[in-house]
């Protein structure tokens, strides 16, 4: 529980700049709106495509553009690489805490802020204009929450890996952009895998990125039955454990290599 202080501290730091929250809401609103407009335009005069209705896609665009993209992961990549480069990381090595766990708690604070101040208003506004479907069933709704937590955990591990790799590659910038590109196409948060060419989708749906955007929303909309929902959750959990293992390994290697110069 001692880590909880990092969560509240991150939340309060963000709160200090609350004056600019309206600008963030507006920026986010316009971005989500662009995605909605695309589906509205494509579904003009069409009822459903491959069993996916217009209402499904509008809900997909709202959830994919808000809840599932809520956490600003580049912040973590930059924090890790800056703290390693400047040597600030040494301060945390001296303390009785585990650095990656501390980062996780501090990012939960950031996520909490973004959710309450930006995402919730944007979801309310967009869904009151375009209509948000309820989860397909109570089971799917509950599993969506579990998938959403998994989505955040996976993204956290991927960003932590990118941040830690900058230790060897000395450029966090390119790692951030590469991760951005992988997420933009493979997460399915924008274009769902249903609309990908079949043989490509068959591969992408098993990559960890698919659990960031596509699988959670597909579960919400009830496009997977109970068995599939649970099976895919286990596969995603497996990916998460695997990636968390890589984070731990990289962190251990990094601490062994670290030589802090100056002070």
């Amino acid at each position: 529980m001692r880590y909880l202080a990092f969560t509240t501290s991150a939340f309060q730091t963000r709160l200090a700049y609350r004056g600019q929250v309206w600008a963030q809401i507006l920026g986010e609103l316009v971005t989500v709106f662009a995605k909605i407009a695309i589906w509205v335009s494509i579904y003009r005069g069409i009822v459903s495509v491959d069993g996916i209705t217009r209402a499904d896609m509008l809900t997909y665009a709202i959830l994919g553009g808000t809840l599932l993209g809520a956490w600003e992961w580049p912040h973590l990549v930059n924090t890790i690489s800056t703290q390693i480069k400047t040597g600030d990381v040494a301060v945390f090595l001296l303390k009785p805490l585990h650095y990656p766990v501390m980062l996780l708690h501090s990012e939960i604070g950031n996520l909490g802020f973004k959710l309450t101040m930006v995402v919730v208003p944007v979801v309310i506004i967009t869904s009151s204009v375009y209509g948000l479907l309820p989860p397909a069933s109570v089971f799917h709704g509950a599993m969506f929450v579990a998938y959403w937590l998994l989505s955040f955990s996976l993204l956290f591990c991927l960003s932590a890996i990118a941040g830690l790799l900058s230790f060897w590659l000395m450029t966090a910038f390119s790692l951030e952009w590469l991760l951005r590109s992988l997420i933009s196409i493979l997460s399915g948060a924008f274009i769902p895998l249903w609309f990908f060419p079949e043989n490509i989708a068959a591969i992408i749906k098993f990559l960890p990125f698919a659990w960031i955007g596509f699988h959670p929303t597909a579960v919400y909309l009830g496009k997977m039955d109970v068995g599939q929902t649970l099976l895919y959750f286990l596969i995603g959990l497996g990916w998460m454990l695997f990636l968390a293992g890589i984070v731990t390994l990289l962190w251990r290697r990094a601490t062994q290599r670290i030589v802090v110069q100056g002070g």
């Binding site: 390119s174 196409i185 990908f196």
Partner: peptide, 19 residues
């Protein structure tokens, strides 16, 4: 860094191509 940006924009356009 430049190569990474090239790939990132390329992927974003790739998503639109899929659409």
């Amino acid at each position: 860094d430049r190569v990474a940006q090239f790939i990132a924009y390329g992927s974003a356009y790739g998503a639109i191509w899929v659409l």
